[in-house]
Amino acid sequence: MLPTHGRYDYHPWPGRRPYAWKDGARLAVYLGVNLEHFAFGEGLGAELAPGGPQPDVMNFAWRDYGNRVGAWRLIGLLDELGFPATVLLNSAMYDYAPALVAAHRARGDEIAGHGRTNSERQSVLPEAEERALVAESTAAIARHEGTPPRGWLSPWIAESRTTPDLLAEAGYAYTLNWCADDAPVWMRTRAGRLLAIPYPQEVNDIPAIVGRKDGAEQFADMIVDDFEERLRQVEDGMPQVMGIALHPYLVGQPYRLRHLRRALAHVAARRGTVWITIAGGVLDHALALPAGTIPGDDA
Protein backbone atom coordinates (compact mmCIF):
# COMPACT_ATOMS: atom_id res chain seq x y z
CA MET A 1 0.00 0.00 0.00
CA LEU A 2 1.23 3.48 -0.87
CA PRO A 3 1.39 6.10 1.87
CA THR A 4 -1.73 8.30 1.89
CA HIS A 5 -2.68 11.60 3.45
CA GLY A 6 -5.99 10.21 4.72
CA ARG A 7 -7.70 13.58 4.35
CA TYR A 8 -10.34 12.58 1.81
CA ASP A 9 -11.45 9.54 -0.19
CA TYR A 10 -11.46 9.16 -3.96
CA HIS A 11 -14.68 10.53 -5.44
CA PRO A 12 -15.03 9.99 -9.21
CA TRP A 13 -16.53 12.95 -11.04
CA PRO A 14 -19.36 10.96 -12.69
CA GLY A 15 -22.07 9.88 -10.29
CA ARG A 16 -21.70 12.66 -7.73
CA ARG A 17 -24.84 14.21 -6.33
CA PRO A 18 -25.71 17.29 -8.45
CA TYR A 19 -26.56 20.62 -6.86
CA ALA A 20 -26.64 24.29 -7.84
CA TRP A 21 -25.00 27.47 -6.63
CA LYS A 22 -26.84 30.69 -5.83
CA ASP A 23 -29.85 31.42 -8.08
CA GLY A 24 -29.43 28.08 -9.81
CA ALA A 25 -26.01 28.83 -11.30
CA ARG A 26 -23.83 25.82 -12.04
CA LEU A 27 -20.54 27.74 -12.17
CA ALA A 28 -19.16 29.82 -9.29
CA VAL A 29 -16.28 32.19 -10.07
CA TYR A 30 -14.08 33.96 -7.53
CA LEU A 31 -10.90 36.03 -7.65
CA GLY A 32 -8.05 35.29 -5.25
CA VAL A 33 -6.01 38.51 -4.95
CA ASN A 34 -2.68 37.86 -3.24
CA LEU A 35 -1.33 40.76 -1.16
CA GLU A 36 2.18 39.79 -0.12
CA HIS A 37 5.15 41.43 1.55
CA PHE A 38 8.72 40.18 1.46
CA ALA A 39 11.80 40.55 3.62
CA PHE A 40 14.54 42.67 2.09
CA GLY A 41 17.77 40.83 1.47
CA GLU A 42 16.66 37.40 2.66
CA GLY A 43 13.99 34.75 2.35
CA LEU A 44 11.87 33.53 -0.53
CA GLY A 45 10.25 35.42 -3.39
CA ALA A 46 9.25 35.07 -7.03
CA GLU A 47 11.87 36.30 -9.48
CA LEU A 48 11.52 38.30 -12.66
CA ALA A 49 15.02 37.11 -13.57
CA PRO A 50 17.55 34.95 -11.72
CA GLY A 51 18.63 36.99 -8.72
CA GLY A 52 22.17 37.80 -7.77
CA PRO A 53 23.69 37.95 -4.29
CA GLN A 54 21.54 39.52 -1.60
CA PRO A 55 20.28 42.13 -1.36
CA ASP A 56 18.51 41.33 -4.63
CA VAL A 57 17.20 44.83 -5.27
CA MET A 58 15.77 44.17 -8.73
CA ASN A 59 13.46 41.33 -7.72
CA PHE A 60 12.51 42.89 -4.39
CA ALA A 61 11.55 46.16 -6.07
CA TRP A 62 9.66 44.34 -8.83
CA ARG A 63 7.52 42.60 -6.22
CA ASP A 64 7.11 45.81 -4.23
CA TYR A 65 5.66 47.49 -7.31
CA GLY A 66 2.54 45.41 -6.73
CA ASN A 67 1.82 46.97 -3.34
CA ARG A 68 2.80 50.51 -4.32
CA VAL A 69 1.13 50.71 -7.75
CA GLY A 70 -0.22 47.50 -9.27
CA ALA A 71 -2.68 46.62 -6.51
CA TRP A 72 -4.30 50.04 -6.71
CA ARG A 73 -4.78 49.70 -10.45
CA LEU A 74 -6.25 46.25 -9.90
CA ILE A 75 -8.73 47.67 -7.36
CA GLY A 76 -9.77 50.20 -9.97
CA LEU A 77 -10.41 47.42 -12.46
CA LEU A 78 -12.42 45.40 -9.93
CA ASP A 79 -14.52 48.48 -9.13
CA GLU A 80 -15.05 49.11 -12.84
CA LEU A 81 -16.37 45.59 -13.40
CA GLY A 82 -18.14 45.14 -10.06
CA PHE A 83 -15.99 42.17 -9.01
CA PRO A 84 -15.68 41.17 -5.35
CA ALA A 85 -12.44 39.56 -4.24
CA THR A 86 -11.05 37.18 -1.69
CA VAL A 87 -7.87 38.88 -0.51
CA LEU A 88 -5.15 36.38 0.45
CA LEU A 89 -3.28 38.48 2.96
CA ASN A 90 0.21 38.26 4.40
CA SER A 91 -0.37 39.74 7.85
CA ALA A 92 2.87 41.75 7.46
CA MET A 93 0.85 43.97 5.11
CA TYR A 94 -0.88 45.60 8.08
CA ASP A 95 2.41 47.17 9.09
CA TYR A 96 3.79 47.76 5.61
CA ALA A 97 0.82 48.92 3.51
CA PRO A 98 -2.19 49.47 5.80
CA ALA A 99 -3.86 51.84 3.32
CA LEU A 100 -3.99 49.07 0.72
CA VAL A 101 -5.65 46.62 3.09
CA ALA A 102 -8.05 49.38 4.15
CA ALA A 103 -9.03 49.94 0.52
CA HIS A 104 -10.05 46.30 0.17
CA ARG A 105 -11.86 46.49 3.50
CA ALA A 106 -13.81 49.51 2.21
CA ARG A 107 -14.85 47.46 -0.84
CA GLY A 108 -16.23 44.74 1.43
CA ASP A 109 -13.74 42.18 0.15
CA GLU A 110 -13.14 38.99 2.10
CA ILE A 111 -9.83 38.82 3.96
CA ALA A 112 -8.37 35.31 4.15
CA GLY A 113 -5.20 34.20 5.92
CA HIS A 114 -2.02 33.84 3.85
CA GLY A 115 0.61 33.55 6.56
CA ARG A 116 2.86 36.29 7.84
CA THR A 117 4.99 36.76 4.74
CA ASN A 118 5.78 34.90 1.55
CA SER A 119 9.42 35.09 2.52
CA GLU A 120 8.86 31.85 4.49
CA ARG A 121 7.27 28.42 4.18
CA GLN A 122 5.30 26.96 7.04
CA SER A 123 5.91 23.40 5.83
CA VAL A 124 9.46 23.29 7.21
CA LEU A 125 8.54 24.40 10.74
CA PRO A 126 8.12 22.14 13.78
CA GLU A 127 4.46 21.81 14.73
CA ALA A 128 4.63 24.29 17.61
CA GLU A 129 6.24 26.93 15.40
CA GLU A 130 3.74 26.35 12.61
CA ARG A 131 0.90 26.68 15.10
CA ALA A 132 2.40 29.98 16.24
CA LEU A 133 2.63 31.21 12.63
CA VAL A 134 -1.04 30.46 12.03
CA ALA A 135 -2.01 32.04 15.35
CA GLU A 136 0.00 35.21 14.71
CA SER A 137 -1.43 35.74 11.24
CA THR A 138 -4.97 34.96 12.41
CA ALA A 139 -4.77 37.31 15.38
CA ALA A 140 -3.55 40.19 13.22
CA ILE A 141 -6.48 39.81 10.82
CA ALA A 142 -8.99 39.50 13.66
CA ARG A 143 -7.57 42.61 15.33
CA HIS A 144 -7.75 44.77 12.21
CA GLU A 145 -10.88 43.38 10.57
CA GLY A 146 -12.92 42.79 13.71
CA THR A 147 -13.46 39.11 12.96
CA PRO A 148 -11.06 36.21 12.34
CA PRO A 149 -10.60 34.87 8.81
CA ARG A 150 -12.46 31.75 7.78
CA GLY A 151 -10.15 30.68 4.96
CA TRP A 152 -6.43 30.03 4.53
CA LEU A 153 -3.90 29.75 1.73
CA SER A 154 -0.42 28.83 2.89
CA PRO A 155 2.51 30.92 1.64
CA TRP A 156 3.76 29.05 -1.43
CA ILE A 157 0.88 26.61 -0.79
CA ALA A 158 3.29 24.72 1.43
CA GLU A 159 1.85 22.33 3.99
CA SER A 160 3.29 20.14 6.68
CA ARG A 161 1.58 16.85 7.46
CA THR A 162 -0.39 18.58 10.22
CA THR A 163 -1.37 21.86 8.53
CA PRO A 164 -5.07 20.94 7.99
CA ASP A 165 -5.28 19.91 11.66
CA LEU A 166 -3.73 23.17 12.83
CA LEU A 167 -6.06 25.21 10.63
CA ALA A 168 -9.17 23.47 11.93
CA GLU A 169 -7.93 23.81 15.50
CA ALA A 170 -7.41 27.54 14.90
CA GLY A 171 -11.02 27.94 13.79
CA TYR A 172 -10.61 27.91 10.01
CA ALA A 173 -13.52 26.56 7.99
CA TYR A 174 -11.91 26.27 4.55
CA THR A 175 -8.53 25.85 2.89
CA LEU A 176 -7.40 26.77 -0.62
CA ASN A 177 -4.24 24.66 -0.46
CA TRP A 178 -5.55 21.54 -2.21
CA CYS A 179 -6.10 21.88 -5.97
CA ALA A 180 -7.31 18.31 -6.48
CA ASP A 181 -10.87 18.99 -7.65
CA ASP A 182 -13.21 21.31 -9.54
CA ALA A 183 -15.74 21.42 -6.70
CA PRO A 184 -15.49 21.63 -2.90
CA VAL A 185 -14.61 18.52 -0.91
CA TRP A 186 -14.77 18.02 2.83
CA MET A 187 -11.43 17.02 4.36
CA ARG A 188 -10.84 15.16 7.60
CA THR A 189 -8.79 16.71 10.40
CA ARG A 190 -8.25 15.79 14.02
CA ALA A 191 -10.48 18.78 14.92
CA GLY A 192 -13.35 17.98 12.56
CA ARG A 193 -13.97 18.71 8.92
CA LEU A 194 -12.36 21.40 6.75
CA LEU A 195 -13.70 22.41 3.33
CA ALA A 196 -11.19 22.28 0.47
CA ILE A 197 -12.29 24.94 -2.03
CA PRO A 198 -10.63 24.73 -5.46
CA TYR A 199 -7.79 27.22 -5.92
CA PRO A 200 -6.16 27.30 -9.36
CA GLN A 201 -2.65 26.22 -10.16
CA GLU A 202 -3.24 26.66 -13.89
CA VAL A 203 -5.31 29.87 -14.15
CA ASN A 204 -2.82 31.48 -11.80
CA ASP A 205 -0.49 34.25 -12.90
CA ILE A 206 2.60 33.00 -11.06
CA PRO A 207 2.90 29.54 -12.71
CA ALA A 208 1.64 31.00 -16.00
CA ILE A 209 3.74 34.15 -16.25
CA VAL A 210 6.72 33.45 -13.97
CA GLY A 211 6.91 29.69 -14.47
CA ARG A 212 5.84 29.09 -18.05
CA LYS A 213 6.67 32.61 -19.32
CA ASP A 214 3.21 33.05 -20.84
CA GLY A 215 2.50 36.47 -22.26
CA ALA A 216 -0.19 38.87 -21.05
CA GLU A 217 -2.49 38.06 -23.96
CA GLN A 218 -1.97 34.34 -23.46
CA PHE A 219 -2.85 34.53 -19.76
CA ALA A 220 -6.02 36.48 -20.55
CA ASP A 221 -6.95 33.93 -23.23
CA MET A 222 -6.39 31.19 -20.66
CA ILE A 223 -8.97 32.79 -18.34
CA VAL A 224 -11.52 33.10 -21.15
CA ASP A 225 -10.94 29.57 -22.46
CA ASP A 226 -11.12 28.05 -18.98
CA PHE A 227 -14.35 29.94 -18.30
CA GLU A 228 -16.00 28.98 -21.60
CA GLU A 229 -15.04 25.32 -21.32
CA ARG A 230 -16.40 25.15 -17.78
CA LEU A 231 -19.69 26.69 -18.94
CA ARG A 232 -19.93 23.89 -21.48
CA GLN A 233 -19.05 21.23 -18.91
CA VAL A 234 -21.56 22.32 -16.26
CA GLU A 235 -24.38 21.65 -18.69
CA ASP A 236 -24.24 18.05 -17.41
CA GLY A 237 -25.61 19.32 -14.10
CA MET A 238 -22.45 19.02 -11.99
CA PRO A 239 -21.44 22.36 -10.46
CA GLN A 240 -17.91 23.71 -10.56
CA VAL A 241 -15.83 26.40 -8.88
CA MET A 242 -13.48 28.46 -11.04
CA GLY A 243 -10.84 30.41 -9.15
CA ILE A 244 -8.62 33.03 -10.78
CA ALA A 245 -5.40 33.69 -8.86
CA LEU A 246 -3.84 37.13 -9.23
CA HIS A 247 -0.72 38.86 -7.89
CA PRO A 248 -0.63 42.66 -8.32
CA TYR A 249 3.09 42.81 -9.11
CA LEU A 250 2.27 40.69 -12.16
CA VAL A 251 -1.19 41.63 -13.44
CA GLY A 252 -0.88 45.20 -12.15
CA GLN A 253 1.67 45.96 -14.86
CA PRO A 254 -0.14 48.21 -17.38
CA TYR A 255 0.14 45.95 -20.42
CA ARG A 256 -1.01 42.91 -18.44
CA LEU A 257 -3.84 44.83 -16.81
CA ARG A 258 -5.16 45.76 -20.23
CA HIS A 259 -5.52 42.11 -21.21
CA LEU A 260 -6.85 41.14 -17.78
CA ARG A 261 -9.59 43.75 -18.21
CA ARG A 262 -10.66 42.03 -21.41
CA ALA A 263 -10.78 38.61 -19.75
CA LEU A 264 -12.64 39.70 -16.60
CA ALA A 265 -15.10 41.76 -18.63
CA HIS A 266 -15.87 38.58 -20.59
CA VAL A 267 -16.65 36.78 -17.34
CA ALA A 268 -18.62 39.71 -15.89
CA ALA A 269 -20.83 39.79 -18.99
CA ARG A 270 -22.23 36.40 -17.95
CA ARG A 271 -23.22 37.58 -14.48
CA GLY A 272 -26.58 35.99 -13.75
CA THR A 273 -25.70 32.86 -15.69
CA VAL A 274 -22.69 32.32 -13.44
CA TRP A 275 -22.31 33.19 -9.78
CA ILE A 276 -19.53 35.74 -9.23
CA THR A 277 -18.68 35.41 -5.56
CA ILE A 278 -15.91 35.07 -2.98
CA ALA A 279 -14.40 31.90 -1.54
CA GLY A 280 -16.33 32.51 1.68
CA GLY A 281 -19.55 32.57 -0.35
CA VAL A 282 -18.76 29.09 -1.64
CA LEU A 283 -18.26 27.97 1.97
CA ASP A 284 -21.58 29.45 3.13
CA HIS A 285 -23.46 27.82 0.26
CA ALA A 286 -21.81 24.45 0.90
CA LEU A 287 -22.78 24.63 4.57
CA ALA A 288 -26.41 25.22 3.62
CA LEU A 289 -26.67 22.23 1.27
CA PRO A 290 -28.41 19.05 2.42
CA ALA A 291 -26.23 16.61 4.31
CA GLY A 292 -24.30 14.26 2.04
CA THR A 293 -24.27 16.61 -0.96
CA ILE A 294 -20.60 17.60 -0.86
CA PRO A 295 -18.13 14.70 -1.18
CA GLY A 296 -16.72 13.80 2.20
CA ASP A 297 -19.84 14.98 4.07
CA ASP A 298 -20.78 11.92 6.07
CA ALA A 299 -23.21 13.77 8.32
Rank of each mutant, 00 (worst) to 15 (best):
P3L: 15
Y8F: 14
D9Y: 10
P14S: 12
R17I: 15
W21R: 10
W21L: 05
K22T: 14
A25N: 08
L31N: 01
G32H: 11
N34R: 01
L35M: 09
F40E: 07
L44I: 09
L48T: 02
A49Q: 13
A49G: 08
F60S: 06
W62E: 03
Y65M: 00
N67A: 05
N67H: 03
R68D: 03
V69A: 05
V69G: 00
A71H: 01
A71F: 05
L74T: 12
E80K: 04
L89H: 09
M93W: 01
M93G: 01
Y96K: 06
Y96C: 07
P98A: 10
P98G: 12
L100I: 10
A102E: 15
A102D: 14
A103I: 00
H104D: 05
R116I: 13
T117Q: 07
S119Q: 09
E120Q: 12
R121Q: 11
E127T: 15
A128E: 15
E129S: 13
E130F: 09
E130Q: 15
L133N: 14
V134P: 04
A135R: 14
A139E: 15
A140M: 10
R143T: 15
T147W: 07
L153G: 08
I157D: 06
I157R: 13
E159V: 05
E159M: 10
E169N: 14
A173K: 08
W178M: 01
W178A: 00
P184Q: 08
R188D: 13
R190V: 15
G192D: 15
P200Q: 02
E202G: 00
P207A: 13
I209N: 05
I209W: 03
Q218R: 15
Q218S: 14
F219R: 09
Q233F: 10
D236A: 11
M238C: 08
V241H: 05
G243H: 05
L260N: 03
R262Y: 10
L264S: 00
A265H: 01
H266E: 02
T277H: 06
G280M: 08
L283V: 04
A288P: 08
G292I: 07
P295D: 11
G296A: 08
G296Y: 09
A299I: 08
